[in-house]
Design a protein around this nucleic acid. Structure first.
Lengths: 359, 359
DNA sequence: CTGAAAGCGCTTACAG
DNA sequence: CTGAAAGCGCTTACAG
């Protein structure tokens, strides 16, 4: 509020009509003659009329605001998500209120409550891993991964993994180390599963779960990748560009040239991925599309909802769908070195196929 | 809205008092007896009463929402900023509405308008470079750099630069290349100026303005740092961790060990900076403090403002202040190699001191 | 096709 | 210390 704009009644007075007519004309409900609508529109525009959200909200029970809940705003993926959601929301006339659920699940619950208390019309939630979003009394769209039970819109992480895997396989890699940091994450498991799924007979994959960022920070915490190279791994398929960056710099630092001596791939195409040397081969989500679907589902659920109903027990709603990921081929992955070390490990040449087919 | 919570009158009825008394009790204006206040508080808590923002906003002319306008949400610094602002705002009982002004200045103006139209009580703006924020009719806090004219709260970028410069100088570096991407940015110039200011007699600094990310992406766009090392530069002081990352990987890729053969420093302590190899020495802003100051200034301006005044021409308000930066010493900067190449350039040993002292 | 009336939930003077 | 009344700006049945 505290805004200078004219109010609805001002337009009504100016034109000598009723407030109701102005309201109807502006909202295009069609109960007003064409000429009248035209005149009202013109005057409103001329006067710079912008409806008061507070007045409207009080009357309609809708605020025109969506809440965005993120597990950790500090996450490097957040910019992509927030930007996409903000764009989709504002295109549909909605504002976006943010809430950080940094910390544990209880913080997430509080963040959601804060948003609900501000009367958001719907919620986009990127849940902390393992969180089941309870019924919050307003439409919710969850962005996670297709393997998460419940209604979610998500990138096809498994498919993205497969693309990375196929790329690596086509380049000639037969011994691939997958690097992630969270075996409990559905997203990470899907990506890893997708990668594994393309490596069959005569190949070998293994998975290295490294320490998360918070713990690794400061300690330098080497991944021990030089050893892995010595063991014959020629490619490091990281579950995130963040891990890929750690892998890449560690390899470089150890004097192992990327991609000549070892290939590195990531996921997400974070902002710096294209500009490092070598530029990172990665798989990116189509955030624009994911956001568009999530917001569209929310907008639909909001408009279908009867504002006069008790609201409690409103359905958790979202489109369940899977958006393809896109492989971005750059320089960090290439053919493996010509002379590969002979594999000596017992587990060599074992094909890993857990998960069978994509969920 | 569309929330299930009880309304104020429900509490009033339950207790057999008037709505006015409930309102007064809950807002602690002190016109209600202590016992009554206690009873009302208890009942409200028990019933889970949360005031309707819409009702309150309509009456008071305040929405309890702050707008956050960013030049580009995709910026890797955005998470830090958004997180800090969200924390500060929610601690003061405010919500945060985001708007992305990606693109040019006109997009920024539109983003601000969208927020104003949603009746935000105040605005935190991280302006696009060179932007003068016009009077928008509500309190504004600008986060930029102390050299920007007008009311701003900002990190002491110049001081941060000086810390980086002193660290490098103490390590023994005498020939330092500063790397930035935008000579028109006040922030970048302050940081660069701070670095330069510590290098006097018998030292040399130069500045390399590289292509911005968008242009560099895809083209691989090498910075030509190996040549600089050959010219005798022993340290690359980058104006952002993003540039430092480009520099670091390019040097590593060229077989130039960091920090043994060349030191690299950055700014901002982005999320991956501590976990790459070698970990990045950098200078970070105290975002928590900056956000706290910005939000506090806004909250103060909002409460001092008379809701009944015409609102147009409301003062652009913020604390003008400068928050110290913190040097984070990690492994990417160390003493220069023992045998430095002889300087042959004509400009060698020139001290650069433009700016004289900190603005 | 247009208008008068009611009311969304709150807070703020103003009486008592 | 407490209450009755008015009103913030809008939209939605309902009459005409």
């Amino acid at each position: 509020m505290a805004r200078s704009g004219p109010k609805l009644t001002r337009i009504a007075r100016t034109l000598g009509v009723s407030a109701a007519t102005v309201s109807n004309a502006l909202s295009g409900k069609g109960r007003v003659s064409a000429e009248m609508v035209e005149k009202i529109r013109a005057t409103a525009a001329e006067l710079g009329y912008v409806p008061s959200q507070a007045g409207r909200a009080l009357r309609t029970g809708r605020t025109g605001v969506l809440g965005l809940v993120l597990p950790d705003i500090a996450n490097p993926l957040f910019p992509q998500i927030a930007q996409a959601i903000e764009l989709a929301a504002s295109s549909s006339g909605y504002g976006v209120l943010i809430a950080d659920s940094r910390g544990d699940v209880s913080t997430q619950t509080k963040a959601i409550e804060r948003l609900i208390d501000r009367d958001v019309d719907g919620l986009v939630i990127v849940p902390r891993r393992g969180t089941r979003i309870a019924d919050v009394g307003c439409p919710v769209a969850v962005i996670d991964t297709p393997s998460t039970p419940g209604n979610t819109v998500a990138a096809d992480h498994w498919g993205g993994g497969r693309q990375i895997g196929e790329h690596l396989k086509a380049l000639g890699h037969r011994r691939v180390m997958i690097i992630g940091n969270n075996p409990a994450s559905n997203v990470q498991n899907d990506r890893a599963g997708g990668i594994r799924s393309v490596f069959g007979e005569g190949t070998h994959t293994d998975t290295l779960w490294i320490e998360p960022l918070e713990k690794a920070a400061g300690k330098g915490c080497p991944l021990g990748l030089a050893d892995k190279v010595a063991e014959g791994y020629t490619a490091f398929a990281c579950i995130s560009d963040l891990h890929a960056l750690r892998a890449l710099t560690e390899l470089q630092r150890a004097g192992i040239n990327v991609p000549e001596k070892a290939s590195v791939t990531g996921f997400d195409d974070l902002i710096w991925s294209p500009v490092i040397t070598p530029a990172l081969t990665t798989a990116r989500m189509d955030m624009t599309k994911i956001a568009a679907i999530a917001v569209a589902a929310l907008v639909k659920a909001i408009s279908e909802r009867d504002p006069s109903d008790p609201a409690i027990g409103a359905p958790v709603t979202a489109a369940t769908c899977k958006v393809p990921m896109h492989l971005v081929v750059r320089q960090s992955a290439a053919a493996p070195p010509a002379s590969q070390p002979i594999l000596t490990t017992a587990t060599a040449a074992t094909s890993v196929t857990e998960g069978g087919h994509q969920p």
